[in-house]
Simulated assay, not measured.
Amino acid sequence: MLLKDAIHKFLHYLTSLERSEQTTSGYEKDLKLFSRFLEKKYNCSPYLEEVSAADIEDYLLWLKEERNYAPASRARNLYTLRSFFAYAYKKELVARNVALSVENIKTQQKERVYLTEEEVQQLVGAIDHDLIRLVVQVLYLTGLRISECLDLTLDTVDLERKVIRVVAGKGNKDRNIPISDKLLPLLRHYVEHDRPYTDSDLFFCTKKTGKLSPVYVNRVLADAVEKLGWKKKVTAHILRHSFASQLVKKEVNLVQIQKLLGHSSLKVTSIYTHSNLEQLSEAVNVL
């Protein structure tokens, strides 16, 4: 079977599993680039069963030297290829998963950037756009991903029961987020006084387009950061990190944080347990 045909079957398989459009398009982009690399290398359309571990190693080296991909991006490509060949092996299209023979790419674990409560207040105060100011407060007080936040509908934000229902979040999982006492009056005021009359079912909407885009939210955030004169980069996702980090700092149980964030494992949630030197000093002095 031609590699490009196998890739097509794999992408169809992902769609049948109801993987998110973002996940599927990410796999598609990586695999098509790999396929083009091999076509150029061998000057023909490669067959799936002829792809070797050496081909993958050459590809990863090419990504580094010719495309200047960072270690994390190359590691993601290797993960994509392992998933693809795991599928091919499972469906008996190949005799073995050749991608497993390729060594892992070492990536430096970055300390997660997050904002203090004071910094969040400063950021909120520097945002001129009323709707995006509210979105930023929601992101910080719920830990929602930006896509989850902007996909909320009038039906999934239950102000009476004080709960936000995230439908088909990452990994196609549903979860409920309690609305805090601090956030509830802000959302009520928005629904009663500020939300425009529109046909849009989305909770956060504009009169003109009926929706908000993540790109626009991040652009307004960048403008506010520039206004404050900060050197750090702040995106919508940093507000999610900040939510988790502040809960850890206030000694909220890690399992509860995992449920709020919608993580599939505690290992992912544990990245937020970073501590500064002062906190570590306090910890050892407890003994």
Rank of each mutant, 00 (worst) to 15 (best):
R161C: 07
R161L: 12
K162L: 10
K162M: 14
V163F: 08
V166W: 00
V166Y: 03
A168C: 11
K170P: 02
G171N: 12
D174L: 02
N176T: 11
P178M: 05
P178W: 04
I179T: 08
D181T: 13
D181R: 12
D181I: 07
D181Y: 09
K182D: 14
L183I: 08
L184D: 08
P185W: 10
L186H: 14
R188I: 14
R188F: 04
Y190W: 09
Y190E: 06
V191Q: 00
V191F: 00
V191L: 10
E192C: 01
E192S: 07
H193C: 09
D194Y: 09
R195I: 02
P196M: 00
Y197L: 13
Y197S: 13
Y197A: 11
T198P: 02
T198A: 06
D199Q: 08
D199I: 09
D199N: 05
S200L: 00
D201V: 13
F204I: 00
F204K: 00
F204H: 00
C205A: 10
T206R: 13
T206W: 04
T209Y: 11
P214E: 01
V215A: 08
V215S: 12
Y216T: 08
N218W: 07
R219S: 12
V220M: 05
A222K: 15
D223R: 15
A224L: 02
A224G: 04
A224D: 06
V225D: 03
E226I: 04
E226F: 07
L228Q: 03
W230E: 09
K231Y: 09
K231F: 03
K232I: 09
K233N: 09
K233P: 04
V234P: 10
V234F: 08
I238N: 03
I238R: 01
L239Q: 01
R240P: 05
R240F: 07
H241R: 03
S242F: 02
S242Q: 02
F243W: 12
F243Q: 10
A244C: 12
Q246C: 01
Q246F: 01
Q246R: 11
L247M: 13
V248D: 12
K249N: 13
K249E: 15
V252G: 12
N253H: 15
N253V: 09
Q256K: 12
I257C: 09
I257Q: 08
Q258M: 03
L261E: 06
L261G: 12
G262V: 11
S264N: 14
S264R: 14
L266P: 04
L266G: 02
V268G: 04
S270M: 11
I271C: 05
Y272E: 13
T273A: 12
H274V: 06
S275F: 14
S275N: 13
L277G: 10
Q279T: 14
L280K: 11
A283C: 04
A283M: 03
A283Y: 11
V284W: 10
